[in-house]
């Protein structure tokens, strides 16, 4: 593998990083929104969200990215590869994050809400000042874990031709007829990125456990 190959890999790493970060930044708050809809039992929206989340959680990212990229144009919605990749990963992580947020919301002690209500706090205030700060801390380890899962399924976007880290390696392998060296290089890159997240998650878990004790 030469310098050009390394540059290709670096560009691919940037693509993987960009897509994953955007999907995390979009998917986490969207998951919270859906979690709140289910928690508050919003009529009509609640069952719809429940079905969509269940469906998305069962859908492989490869299939979903093909669906988003090839099917949306038939509905008259032409979207570029990059956007399709971000949308796919966002949808998947949104569904898993919804369950994480919902779990934290369901575990939230009701007496605190009653107390807040007794103090005359309105719904928005209760949510913003009482509920959110606490469930954020409770959900953080699970959310970080979901981020590592997102990065692990991110190579799925390569099937629609996005040149992410994995596809960049495939490309170099095809050019040089030696597929293993580029794969081993990106293996190290993924292990560093995902390993970093895993370590962060372990630290967070320890800190949350420490705070709870």
């Amino acid at each position: 593998m030469n310098t050009a190959g390394l540059l290709t890999l670096a560009a691919g790493a940037g693509e993987t990083f960009g897509i994953s970060m955007l999907a995390i930044l979009l998917g986490t708050p969207l998951g919270l929104l859906l979690g709140l809809v289910r928690w508050a039992r919003v009529p009509l929206a609640d069952p719809i969200v429940a079905v969509v989340v269940s469906l998305l959680r069962a859908t492989p990212s490869v299939t979903l990215v093909l669906l988003v990229y090839f099917a949306l144009p038939t509905l008259g919605l032409e979207i570029p590869r990059f956007a399709a990749a971000v949308a796919t990963l966002t949808l998947g992580s949104m569904a898993f994050n919804c369950e994480i947020w919902r779990g934290a919301l369901l575990a939230f002690p009701a007496d605190q809400l009653d107390a807040a209500r007794a103090c005359g706090m309105r719904r928005g205030q209760r949510l913003r000042l009482i509920v959110l700060p606490q469930i954020m801390r409770a959900s953080l380890p699970a959310l970080v874990n979901e981020m590592t899962l997102l990065i692990k399924v991110s190579p799925a976007v390569a099937v629609i031709g996005v040149v992410d880290l994995t596809r960049a390696a495939v490309r170099i392998g095809a050019q040089t007829y030696r597929p293993l060296p580029p794969f081993l290089v990106i293996l190290a890159v993924y292990v560093v990125i995902i390993g970093g997240f895993v370590l962060a998650q372990r630290m967070l878990e320890r800190r949350v456990a420490g705070a709870g004790a």
Partner: peptide, 9 residues
């Protein structure tokens, strides 16, 4: 820590 798709390759 390895994405499954990469492991598959």
């Amino acid at each position: 820590c390895v994405p499954f798709m990469l492991f598959c390759y």
